[in-house]
Design a protein around this nucleic acid. Structure first.
Length: 1013
RNA sequence: GCCUAGGUGGCGGAAUUGGUAGACGCGCUGGAUUCAAAAUCCAGUUUCUUCGGAAGUGCGGGUUCGAUUCCCGCCCUAGGUACCA
């Protein structure tokens, strides 16, 4: 009987679906294990073979854990809100919900064909009201919470109100806006409710604030940084300006330290942890306040500049201050003489985009404000400069410049001829700054003679004593903007009363996304929800009503922004635990049972987005006792990318070469000639042999005689063709036209596009093939190059066609066989024949065993040895996520058992369980043919028995000076001396030594023999 | 610049605590089977070689009886990040 994979795979996929084989229960005697893939966005392009890599790996692990007796939760769903669907809606007018649904169906069909063990009863989609109801609820919870630094956790806003009522701000230690006003309990209680609201807004974990965005007026949208190229929009190339907008922000910075600390408790890849650490960017130092000279005597409040420094020990080395050009103090302190220069400089920097400023590190620019600051210890006047190397968005937007200790300050000082004061003992700073932290401080009053550590401590102490500074920890992490001016996202459960945002009560959620005519922003620049006609909140009926009912008494306007993509994905892993719960995001029982994801698989591109936000929300939900753990994923693995192998054809492009003077006049005729020419493509190796892709080739060369003859037929004006030079342009061709020998199907290529219909091919042997002429014995070879798999490069390989031709089991094995999971590796379809023929070989092994039924009886020693070394290796491999090596192990096992003509049920049955996580369909089929009536899915994993691997002899490698020269089989129970004696007497040893006496003989019993000398 | 990962045949890769470098697969070569093809099976396949061997894991050193593995310096590739005070 043949291995009919299509039939077998369809049969078992149906069986699993009908029997709900992989449905996870929320109560079980078994230990739990939660395996999750990172949330996919269902794009219109569907899956290519790179996508399932991680899904196959996690599926193998999930199936393995079932064999190991775990209750496994392995769900799947869709992060279905998002920009591409909205973009498509804008272009076509189709509702994003419709296209999203279509895309999801395509995804599902593709996923089903690969035989994943997902529990589809728990499928979720972030764009369904049943789901985003809870996303909206979490948002209101964040709004109704503040961060208590005293308890180091988030608390309900009521506890803050209670503190205000009792003591005002006196006993409040909270994460809040900068510069909040201080008040007493009496004052608080006297505030109007609006005033109280305004105060509370400064403490809430989500709050409205003016944020700068990249506004593109032509597109009517806000753009992300990577959608902007050279100050223009990526799409259309329209101008982009910085614009302030009132937006929701998330106070993630409150969690900076805990997000950092939490990294030590989770098993995530080091590079990923490193990038989160960098992103959070903790730096320890001090904040120092400098008074602006001359501002002390006036009537006004003295002007001060606050800076953050990581090196307070170098405070005596300060010779100037630098403010960011955007710093608000600049306009206040600039002197009349300097006004013009400073303003010109500010205008110049404002024109440069952030990207320009970043790209251009070498140009030093700045301007003197004319003002001076007073050194807190020496009382000296130090000039205040502005310079764009100081960023307004980091720290306080101002630095105390210590040119002797910081290279950027040094370069700035050199450029503008500012004093460089040396405060390091015995170090020359005439060439460059000293950034070495082992240098001793000198020339620094009370800090002189101290090392960095001691000086830092003392400097902070003195700053605090003088009331001009304090020790401080600064984080790079900014609060996250949470508003999007888009349609296809979660609506905020927010309405505005008297200009203040009001949360809609949880009981009335979800607030459904309204229907709109157009998905574009409104003409007056409002987000797309501004187009909705029924988008007002009636506080009496607690329903969404028509806009014309707005009276600002009982009916109020609703928020027009929507939530960003990361809202829905920041808590979805909790939803899977109880996906169909209509009342809560998940029941307490379900949360307490599943707790967290045990294995999370996905790409490293989510390092500082999804994975940071999700950790933030989890910690918040933990603080409010909604979830039992404060890290949502115990272990995380980044799977590498599968790259595509693009194929290129080489189009000949004739160029006018070096014209002699008399040919100059024929330029037009030449152009006409080029236009008449059909497209000509050269075979790759032909080019390699004679010409070069990179360089232009001289057409007068004899090598081109064939093509020249051909071109001559188009040469109506009798032009001199010898002055032409040729260039070869590599053009992507669809990889499906190319076979494993890199030969192109020229018919398929000609039919691909109208412009190639009449294409001419120059074959490998140099023959010119006109349209209609087929290759015959000739070959056309394409060039190949490894690139990212993408539609535009025509190198996408579709898993469906692979499943059809070779089967899902072959695909699964091959994807794992390609190489280590974490590494990126190129796809090469021809390799799949290896894993496919392995499955056929395996099928034959079982077919030969009493027509699939297997033979009862004692297996031989050798058979047992093969089985048990396979058990050992495969178990180790899966535990180490080394899936590629276990595929090799299976191949070896089947090869060896085939050689032994093994037909014993006692061997063949456990072997199926080992292979089943990797190739679930064929193993189910063979399992049932062996006489089992239950699915293999929960069959226990075979237990490794070391006694079967015990050997009595070892084939020792005999090395001379560390190089293996021959092998010698010896019993394992020999002593070192006995081994040495036998080896030394061996004729090959004597031959190697050629009469020399060895200096030393190393014998490691059971391992190696090494003879030195 | 900094951080991280990596560099092994024609290709993907293996070598788990330092102990036989190149497992397994692709590709290629030859053979068997076949009218022929597909499929299958068998043999070979790092390089050089005077056929005895010799060299060899990015480069240069070091530790060791022994290094793909450990240490030092350098080169290259990929990913991340950036005037971060």
């Amino acid at each position: 009987m043949e291995y009919n994979f299509n039939e077998i795979e369809a049969k078992w996929q149906k069986y699993w679906a009908d029997n709900q084989t992989f449905k996870a229960e929320n109560t079980s005697e078994k230990p739990k294990f939660y395996v999750l893939d990172m949330f996919p966005y269902p794009s219109g392009a569907g899956l290519h073979v790179g996508h399932p890599l991680g899904y196959i790996a996690s599926d193998i692990f999930a199936r393995y854990k079932r064999h190991k007796g775990f209750n496994v939760l392995h769900p799947q769903g869709y992060d279905s809100f998002g920009l591409p669907a909205e973009q498509y809606a804008i272009q076509t007018g189709q509702h994003p919900a419709v296209t999203t649904e279509t895309n999801i169906n395509t995804y599902r069909k593709q996923l089903d064909k690969i035989g994943f063990s997902f529990d589809w009863s728990r499928e979720i989609r972030t764009s369904t009201p049943e789901y985003y109801k809870h996303t909206q609820w979490i948002f209101t919870e964040l709004f109704n919470a503040w961060y208590n630094k005293e308890a180091d956790k988030a608390e309900k806003i009521e506890t803050l109100v209670a503190l205000f009522e009792a003591n005002g701000t006196a006993k409040v230690n909270a994460v809040c806006d900068e510069e909040v006003e201080q008040f007493t309990a009496l004052e608080w209680n006297a505030f109007s409710s609006k005033e109280q609201e305004q105060v509370l807004a400064q403490y809430r974990l989500t709050y409205l604030s003016e944020t700068e965005v990249n506004w593109c007026a032509a597109l009517g949208t806000v753009l992300a940084n990577d959608e902007i190229i050279n100050g223009l929009s990526e799409r259309g190339g329209h101008p982009v300006e910085r614009k302030k907008m009132m937006q929701w922000s998330m106070r993630i910075a409150a969690y900076a330290q805990r997000l950092l600390d939490g990294l030590n408790t989770i098993d995530w890849p080091q590079p990923l942890k490193d990038s989160q650490t960098n992103w959070i960017g903790r730096s320890q130092g001090a904040s120092v306040t400098f008074n602006v000279a001359g501002s002390l005597s006036g009537d006004e409040k003295p002007k001060t500049i606050e800076v953050f420094t990581t090196r307070p020990d170098t405070i005596f080395g300060v010779t100037f201050m630098t403010l960011a050009p955007e710093h608000e103090l600049v306009s206040q302190i600039v002197t009349d003489e300097q006004k013009e220069t400073v303003e010109a400089y500010i205008t110049a920097t404002a024109k440069r985009s952030e990207r320009d400023r970043m790209a251009d590190v070498k140009t030093i620019s700045g301007a003197f404000t004319g003002a001076y600051a007073v050194h807190p210890f020496t009382g000296e006047n130090i000039p205040i400069w502005i310079g764009d190397y100081v960023l307004a968005s980091y720290g306080t937007g101002a630095v105390m410049a210590v040119p002797c200790g910081d290279q950027r300050d040094y370069d700035f000082a050199k450029h503008f001829n500012i004093e460089i004061k040396n405060i390091f003992e015995g170090i020359d700073v005439s060439e460059k700054a000293c950034e070495d932290k082992t240098a001793k401080i000198a020339n620094s009053d009370f800090l002189s003679g101290l090392n960095v550590k001691k000086a830092t401590k003392l400097a902070i102490y003195e700053l605090e004593k003088a009331g001009v500074g304090q020790g401080k920890i600064n984080y790079r992490l900014r609060d996250a903007v949470f508003s999007r001016q888009r349609y296809w996202g979660e609506p905020f459960p927010v309405y505005y009363k008297d200009g203040m945002p009001q949360m809609i009560d949880a009981a009335h959620l979800p607030i459904l996304l309204p229907e709109v005519e157009k998905y574009l922003p409104t003409e007056d620049g409002q987000p797309p929800l501004g187009n909705a006609e029924v988008w007002a909140w009636d506080t009496e009926t607690s329903t969404v009503v028509s806009n014309d009912k707005i009276d600002d008494k009982t009916v109020f306007p609703l928020e027009l922004n929507t939530m960003p993509g990361w809202a829905g994905s920041s808590w979805y892993f909790n939803r899977y635990m109880d996906a169909n719960n209509p009342n809560e995001f998940a029941s307490k029982d379900a949360l307490d049972y599943w707790k967290e994801v045990d294995l999370y698989l996905g790409g490293s591109e989510h390092a500082t987005g999804h994975l940071l936000y999700a950790r933030f929300w989890q910690k918040f939900l933990f603080d409010l006792n909604y979830v039992p753990v404060d890290e949502f994923a115990k272990k995380l693995i980044n799977q590498g990318m599968i790259t595509g192998t693009s194929a290129f054809v080489y189009r000949v492009k004739p160029h006018a070469g070096l014209f002699s003077k008399e040919l100059e006049g024929d330029k037009e005729k030449y152009d006409l000639f080029y236009d008449r020419l059909p497209q000509v493509f050269h075979s790759r190796q032909l080019i390699d042999k004679y010409y070069s892709v990179e360089k232009k080739s001289d057409f007068s060369n004899d090598k081109f005689s064939e093509i020249k003859k051909f071109y001559q037929t188009y040469n109506e004006d009798n032009l001199d063709l010898n002055c032409i030079s040729l260039e070869f342009q590599p053009i992507h061709t669809d990889v499906s036209f190319v076979d494993t020998q890199n030969e192109l199907d020229i018919e398929a290529f000609r039919n691909w596009r109208e412009e190639y219909k009449k294409a001419i091919f120059i074959s490998e042997s140099g023959k010119v093939l006109s349209p209609g002429e087929d290759l015959g014995e000739e070959k056309y070879i394409v060039g190949r190059e490894v690139e990212k798999m993408s539609k535009s490069k025509y190198n996408v390989v579709n898993p469906d066609s692979i499943c059809e031709e070779y089967g899902a089991d072959s695909l699964r094995l091959f994807e794992m066989f390609l190489g280590p999971l974490e590494q990126s590796k190129p796809w090469n379809t021809s390799g799949i024949s290896g894993s496919h023929s392995f499955l056929k070989k395996m099928w034959r092994l079982y077919a030969n065993a009493n027509d699939f039924k297997g033979v009862e009886g004692e297996p031989s020693k050798d058979e047992l040895k093969v089985l048990h070394k396979t058990i050992k290796k495969v178990e180790e491999d899966i535990e180490n996520f080394s899936f590629n090596t276990s595929v090799s192990t299976f191949m070896i096992a089947v090869n060896e058992l085939g050689a032994l003509k093994c037909n014993k049920k006692e061997i063949l049955e456990p072997l199926l369980v080992l292979i089943s996580p990797y190739a679930p369909h064929i193993t189910e089929e063979l399992w049932s043919k062996l006489g089992n009536t239950e699915s293999i899915a929960t069959a226990p994993f075979p237990v490794f028995e070391p006694s079967h691997l015990v050997e009595s002899a070892k084939e020792y490698p005999v090395s001379f000076n560390g190089k293996m020269r021959f092998k010698l089989e010896l019993p394992l129970d020999l002593s070192k001396d006995e081994i040495e004696k036998i080896v030394m007497e061996h004729e090959k040893t004597q031959a190697q030594l050629q009469g020399r006496t060895p200096k030393k003989v190393i014998v490691v019993p059971g391992k190696i023999i090494n003879i030195v000398g």
